[in-house]
Amino acid sequence: MSRSDKLTLAGRPDFEAIAHWVKPGSTALDLGCGDGLLLKYLRETKGVRGYGVEIDDASVLACVKNGVNVIQSDLERGLAGFDAGSFDYVILSQTLQAVRHTEEIVGEILRVGRQGIVTFPNFGHWSQRLQIFFAGRMPVSDVLPYQWYNTPNLHLFTMADFENFCAGHSIRILDRLALHRGRPVRLMQNLRGTLAVFRFENSAGYLRT
């Protein structure tokens, strides 16, 4: 890998966690794939055949430049172009907090993918809690660097919230990871993790063919 790729990956510690989880030679759909570097990383490290979905023109161009398959499409309109169970993994990294139709998108992830992988900034981190508790203001941090009035994040939630969501939507969590400054947090994850990574599937289990 080139030097620049490594630098970019250093800014996305969730990529390594995802790469650790996916099976070699599997297929992945990366929703909101940005410049496609996760897919490039998965291809180079795990031989994953992947496609990105992006709405942004500049990101689509960046993917083509990076030699990554990308389909220009609006996530909020669902994944109508993708068949049920057509991918091993559907990934949504650091985007779930920014989508309008959260339930629908998680539903689509588990329709199209046998498993889903999401990463999101954990609003349960102690520093966020302290900012609200003591300053009485919406938290601003490295992972959530926006003010309340200009944030692209529509739904802020914690690891505990996501686990609760899964329990209520017949979703079985297969793996969870909390990261802080790129390193895994083992104890009191919801309090000490700034970035959450989850792998999950329908608890009914997907019928494999």
């Binding site: 496609y51 023109d57 689509v60 398959n69 990308v70 389909i71 220009q72 499409s73 172009g81 057509s86």
Partner: peptide
Amino acid sequence: SREIVKALLDNRRDVSYAEIE
């Protein structure tokens, strides 16, 4: 064009698709 993209995806071919405004 999306029909074509879908057919290529079904076959796991390398494909990128852009919709220019």
